[in-house]
Computed example of a mutant assay.
Amino acid sequence: MMTPCIEGVTTNLSELIALRQHIHKIPLFSTPQRRSLLLGHHHARLRGRGVDFDQVRPYQVGDDVRHVDWRVTARTREPHTKIFHEERERPIYLLVEQSPRLFFGTQRQFKSVLAAQAAALIGWVALEHCDRVGGLVFSQHQHQEVRPRRRQHSLLQFLQCLAQANQQLAQPLSSTTASSTTDSLSFALHRTREVLRPGSLVVLLCDERALTDLAEQQLKLLGRHLDLLLLPLSDPLDHRLPRAGLLDFTEQDSYLSLNTHDRSVRNRYRRYAEARQQRWVQLAHQLNTPHLPLSTQRGVIEQLHDYLTSTLGA
């Protein structure tokens, strides 16, 4: 029996499966007609016959005569041949946070739902591309892992874990869980380093606020041997406080009161948010990896489509 969900607040397996019909809108990988966001990452080191043009070089004995570049040959009066990248399948590992800090949203969906939907979309796209798909769903006290395989059953198993973790967020938190300060992202990244081989692609979907010093260190270690795609999630309220008077926040025995009419409070809050965003930008630059921040303001299909098509010039 399929568990019902509250639109924008929780999701379920049927919704994550239904996203498969939209994979043609997400140009994540290369085709003969389109350059990929991951071009340069998703190719074998061997050069040979493939779908993506690499370069022209002087003809060598054994080259396929069908790939002779006759224009260059006529211009230089020496035979030249076209060389292509040879693509290969590889593991795609979806690292998806489903912690209580993601169970929040002021716009069209909660961050936890946005993370689940983005992971499902990318998983379906990767499977369609004949890659092996798996991943790890993590929170403070638990993680569920599915090893990458090139089978629909494995992706469905992962999506089921993701849907279950998402719906558990709607359950009341115990005092132990609510007060936890575990760096769950660092643990998940460490686990990823243990199970993946070099050349795999790790797609990280986590709260924008999750990037600690330890997590950043783990990401840099991962980036030495693995490809990364960073998708930090945020809500507009993470970046700016509204002028709403005195706001009171409570969590177990903790209490915080903010006077949002105070301009200095709002400015300080905004500067902290800008620093978090800039930290992700700098990290992506250091790792030379794509960075696609997602917001609860817009649907995930629209965001991924617009970002990828504008990046690729499609």
Rank of each mutant, 00 (worst) to 15 (best):
P293Y: 03
L229M: 00
D213M: 09
S257T: 08
A273F: 01
E208N: 11
R224N: 11
R266V: 04
Q282I: 11
H261P: 05
A284S: 03
E251V: 10
Q218H: 08
W280K: 01
Q218M: 10
D207E: 08
L283R: 00
L230S: 03
S254D: 15
H239W: 07
L246T: 09
L230H: 01
K220R: 14
L211A: 00
S264G: 15
P232Y: 00
A284R: 00
L258C: 02
Q286V: 11
R271W: 15
L230Q: 02
R268G: 14
R268M: 15
T250S: 13
A210N: 05
Y269Q: 02
E216S: 07
Q252V: 15
D253G: 06
N267C: 10
L292S: 09
Q217M: 14
D253V: 11
P293K: 05
L241R: 04
P236H: 08
W280L: 03
H261K: 13
V281A: 12
L283H: 04
H239R: 09
L292G: 03
V265Y: 01
L246I: 07
S234A: 09
R243C: 13
R240A: 14
L241N: 01
N267M: 10
R268I: 10
D262W: 04
T250H: 12
R276W: 06
D227G: 08
D238L: 00
D238T: 06
L231H: 02
Q282C: 13
S264M: 14
N259C: 08
D248A: 14
R240I: 14
L241G: 05
A244N: 05
D235K: 00
L256A: 05
H285R: 14
V265P: 00
L241C: 06
Y269T: 02
L229A: 01
T289H: 01
H239M: 07
W280V: 04
G223I: 01
K220Y: 10
L241Q: 06
D248V: 15
R263W: 08
L214K: 10
R271G: 09
A210V: 01
H291E: 08
G223R: 00
S257K: 11
W280N: 02
A284I: 02
T260N: 09
V281H: 14
L229V: 02
T212E: 01
Q282T: 08
E208C: 08
D253E: 09
A210E: 03
L283N: 05
D253F: 12
Q277D: 08
P236V: 03
Y255G: 13
P290R: 01
L237Y: 10
L230P: 00
L237A: 09
Q286T: 07
E216T: 07
P242M: 03
T260L: 05
N259K: 03
L221P: 05
D253Y: 10
K220V: 12
